[in-house]
Computed example of a mutant assay.
Amino acid sequence: MVGDKDQAIYGSLGGVAKTVEAISIQFGHIAISELELSGNYRSSQRVIDYYRNYQSAGINIESLSKYAKESGLITFNRNIDKDELADYIAQIIQQNLDSGVPENEICVLAPQWWLVIPMGRKLKSLLPNVNFDAIGLSPLLKNKENIWFKVARLFLVSPSPKMYFVRGRWAIELVNEFDSLGIEILPETDRKSKVLLKFINSISSEKEDGLAYLEECFKSLLALLCINIQRYPTLKLHWEYFFESSKKRLEKPEFDYAKDIASFKRLFNHTSGVVVNTCHGIKGEEFHTVIAFGLLNGYVPHKSDLDPIDSSRKLLYVICSRSKKNLHLISEIRTRYRRQMLVTEHLRDLNYMYDSYKI
């Protein structure tokens, strides 16, 4: 078992981080030997030394990356107004792109969905020639755990030489996903993923509505694979969640999503680009440059957290440890209940010599 108690950030979402003793009891009082991994292949030593300020475990971490000794940038801005925030972040993104950082090596994140979604839209408007992998740009909820999301991306991303290997990998993942649900597809076939791709490539619909198009294609695929969805409760549950969550997003007037299949395909084809997501959504990921905003008391930690001090520290640890070289932290000026919000406590109290950063 592998874990990091400094990254146990799902408490507010119902997650439970158990102690070694509790795990031992759960498995019948087994003996557990604790080992530590102290080598880090992701971040520069400077980034590591910074985010260790939010560490509780006290493990010494050494950068083993090829850029371990590079200084990069670590900045903190607490003086920018929320109305100027999108322009400020857009300029940071553009400067990174101009210096040769790939789009998918840049991440913009915030602690809550309602901050993330409008930011993705504003950044896309400010940087129309930049690709974004942003929550809220697509009407389909990007849920990689849902099997129908995996089916949808194969229908929405058209076959092309550029996408040949990507779609092939997705097809293999889909075969494995069916297998994990106890559904054997194409039992007499050796190269199942190849045949599955041929089936998907042969299916189309005349429907103009995006969800109606996908539903008809999904049903055609089930027919070709001889799968009765009623026999598989989990498969049916994934179906219901996929379509219900998508319908709810499409119905929200503030998002104003295009509902036609052409728009679905156009938006879905940009599955790589500058990532705009939540702190929870990027856990486990790594980026050359991380730009985090909304680092304010009430957001980090969330006002409903039962252990706000511990939660705040862990969120900052996760946010900062996503960075390879550059880290831009922002506690923008916002008001709530007519009072200015405060910088999240751990960030406010840390005495650190940040880099100056000019746009």
Rank of each mutant, 00 (worst) to 15 (best):
G273T: 01
K248Q: 01
I330Y: 06
K283M: 03
E251R: 06
R348Q: 09
G58Y: 12
A8Y: 06
L197E: 10
S246W: 00
R334E: 10
I282A: 04
V300L: 01
G273N: 04
G58K: 14
A31N: 15
K66E: 11
I135W: 12
L127G: 13
T344D: 13
K358R: 15
K5M: 12
D98R: 12
C217K: 05
H328S: 04
Y67M: 05
S43V: 00
G298W: 02
Y213L: 08
E285L: 14
L222W: 05
V275G: 01
N297Y: 06
E332R: 00
G136V: 02
A90D: 10
V20R: 12
W113A: 15
R249N: 01
Y41T: 00
C320L: 07
Q95I: 04
K162T: 11
D260H: 13
L126E: 13
V130A: 04
L214D: 04
Y88W: 12
Y299P: 07
M341V: 05
K66C: 13
F264G: 04
I359L: 15
I172L: 11
G100M: 07
R191E: 15
S99W: 05
N79T: 14
D98H: 05
W113Y: 12
Y88E: 14
R167I: 04
K314Y: 00
K192Q: 11
F242M: 05
R231A: 11
E188C: 13
I92E: 14
E244F: 03
M341Q: 09
E70G: 11
K5L: 11
R338G: 14
G3V: 05
F255L: 10
I48Q: 01
G168W: 07
S71E: 09
R46P: 05
C217D: 02
I183G: 10
L181H: 06
K325G: 05
A223M: 12
G58L: 09
I291F: 05
V2M: 04
I59H: 06
R336C: 09
I309G: 01
I135M: 13
W113R: 14
S311A: 09
L225N: 12
S205G: 05
K247C: 08
V175E: 15
L224T: 11
L35Q: 06
A57S: 15
P187M: 06
V116C: 01
K236E: 15
L85E: 09
K236Y: 14
E286S: 00
Q95C: 08
R46I: 01
E36K: 10
L295H: 01
R336G: 08
L123A: 13
A258Y: 12
G210Y: 12
I183W: 05
G120T: 00
V101P: 04
I183L: 07
K162E: 03
Y164V: 02
S263L: 08
T234H: 15
L315C: 10
L316E: 05
L126A: 15
Y164F: 15
R42Y: 02
Y232G: 11
